[in-house]
Simulated scan of single mutants.
Amino acid sequence: MTFTLIAIDLAAALILSLALYYRRHRRRDLVVAFLGVNVGVLAVATSLGSAEVALGLGLGLFGVLSIIRLRSSEISQREVAYYFSALAIGLVAGLPAADPLIAGGLIALILAVMWGADHPRVLSRSRHQTVLVDRAIADERELQEELGARLGGATITSCTIQHLDMVNDTTLVDVRYRAAPPSTPSPSRRATASAALAGSVR
């Protein structure tokens, strides 16, 4: 049974790190981190041989990853979710006396949730940026109108002023918005672009 769970874990870790994360986000360093966390948790949980100790290990590692998140500006919330998923898969597969069917079902559930939640088409127009505006704007409504115009007609859902500089006339804003849908070029513009392309080919 242990070898079956190890095989399930390794297959799931590869799917999570390569087929899901790397294919969508292209960060090789985090692929190494996800695989290392997964295999490390699997090895420790399997060798301990006690469900209570393994559970304590899992909770401790969750706490460590939370500290890493607070101390690092390079790891996004999305990547923390992948960290937790890799850890959870290793822990589920490494628990003593784990049933392969139940463990396999839970691991499949984790992969399915990550596939759907991080799919490019899910909330694809939602954006989050920190914007430096070259005007000092204290009024929130005016600031939202200014940001919407500068972000290509986006719908501003939330904006928080982080720094208002009256001397240098700037405003630093944390803004969340929905990007405007991509506009379809008119037939005349498509014809002009086609003609320009044909001319460049000649």
Rank of each mutant, 00 (worst) to 15 (best):
R141H: 14
V113W: 07
P96M: 03
P100M: 08
A81G: 13
V131C: 00
G90W: 02
A97L: 10
E79N: 12
L95R: 04
G148N: 01
H128W: 12
L106E: 13
R125C: 01
L143N: 10
D139H: 14
L151A: 05
W115P: 00
E145S: 07
A81N: 02
E145D: 12
V122N: 09
P100R: 05
A93M: 14
L143D: 09
I102T: 15
L123E: 08
A88N: 12
G116H: 10
A112T: 12
D99P: 06
A98H: 05
P120K: 03
V133D: 05
A138P: 01
F84S: 07
L91W: 12
R150W: 00
E79F: 00
Q144S: 15
R150E: 06
Y83I: 15
Y82H: 07
F84N: 05
V131H: 08
A103K: 12
L91I: 14
Q144Y: 03
P100L: 03
V122D: 03
L147I: 08
L111I: 05
S126M: 10
A103Q: 04
I102W: 09
G153L: 11
R135K: 10
L109K: 05
A81H: 01
R141W: 07
A86F: 09
A103R: 07
P96I: 12
R127H: 04
L106C: 15
Y83E: 02
Y83M: 15
A149G: 01
A149N: 06
E146F: 14
D99T: 03
V113Q: 08
